[in-house]
Lab assay of single mutants.
Amino acid sequence: NQASVVANQLIPINTALTLVMMRAEVVTPMGIPAVDIPRLVSMQVNRAVPLGTTLMPDMVKGYA
């Protein structure tokens, strides 16, 4: 099973992602693959992402 990107903290809307905000976890359903974490750094979320939420492609501006 491939790990997905999960929020390590509450990420407010329009926040630029940093490594500290994300962790890799095997979850269902799968979200953004953990291998993409370096690519996500400095991209912004388009909604508030609660702690423990799996990041989906439509939550990150410019990802999809």
Rank of each mutant, 00 (worst) to 15 (best):
M21L: 05
G31W: 02
V6Q: 05
P29A: 09
R23E: 08
Y63L: 06
M43T: 06
N1M: 15
V20L: 13
V45Q: 00
Y63V: 05
N14C: 03
D58K: 11
S4V: 03
L51M: 13
M59K: 02
T18H: 10
V45C: 03
V5E: 01
A16V: 10
P50C: 04
V20M: 11
T53W: 10
L10Y: 10
N8L: 05
T54W: 02
N8A: 15
L19E: 08
N1P: 13
T18P: 00
T18Y: 03
L55W: 01
Q9S: 11
G31M: 02
V49D: 01
I37G: 05
V35Y: 13
L55Y: 02
M21T: 04
R39V: 11
L40A: 01
L10F: 15
T54Y: 02
L51I: 11
I32W: 02
T53Q: 08
P12H: 07
T18M: 12
V27D: 02
P50Q: 09
P38V: 13
E25N: 09
P50I: 06
T53V: 12
G52H: 07
P38E: 12
L17E: 00
V20D: 14
V41T: 06
Q9N: 15
T28H: 08
N46G: 14
Q44H: 11
L40Q: 00
D36L: 07
A64P: 12
A3L: 12
V49H: 02
N14V: 03
R39N: 07
L40E: 01
S42Y: 11
N46F: 09
T18G: 08
A7G: 03
I11C: 03
T54C: 03
I32Q: 00
N46R: 12
M43K: 09
I32F: 03
G31L: 01
G62Q: 10
A7V: 07
P29N: 04
M30L: 14
P33D: 07
V5C: 04
P12F: 05
T15H: 09
M30F: 13
P57D: 15
M56N: 06
S4Q: 02
S4N: 01
T28F: 12
L55M: 11
D36M: 11
L19K: 06
D58M: 12
V60G: 01
Q44L: 11
S42P: 02
I32V: 13
G52T: 03
V5S: 04
Q9T: 09
A3Y: 12
T15W: 05
L40R: 00
P33I: 06
M21F: 04
M30N: 14
G62P: 09
V26E: 14
V6G: 01
A48C: 03
I37W: 02
V27A: 11
A64M: 13
I13Q: 14
I32S: 01
K61R: 09
M30W: 12
P38D: 15
V27M: 13
M21Q: 05
T15G: 15
D36T: 08
P57T: 05
M30H: 13
R47S: 11
T53R: 14
Y63I: 07
I11Q: 00
P29S: 06
P50F: 10
Y63D: 04
V45K: 00
N14A: 10
M43F: 13
I13F: 13
P57A: 15
V6L: 07
L19M: 07
M43E: 06
A24I: 15
G52L: 04
L55C: 02
S4A: 04
P38T: 13
I13C: 03
A48L: 09
V35N: 14
N14Y: 10
G52M: 06
R23M: 07
M30V: 11
N46M: 10
G62F: 09
S4W: 02
A48R: 13
Q2R: 07
A7W: 02
K61P: 15
P12D: 13
T18V: 04
I13L: 07
G31E: 01
M59D: 11
N8Q: 10
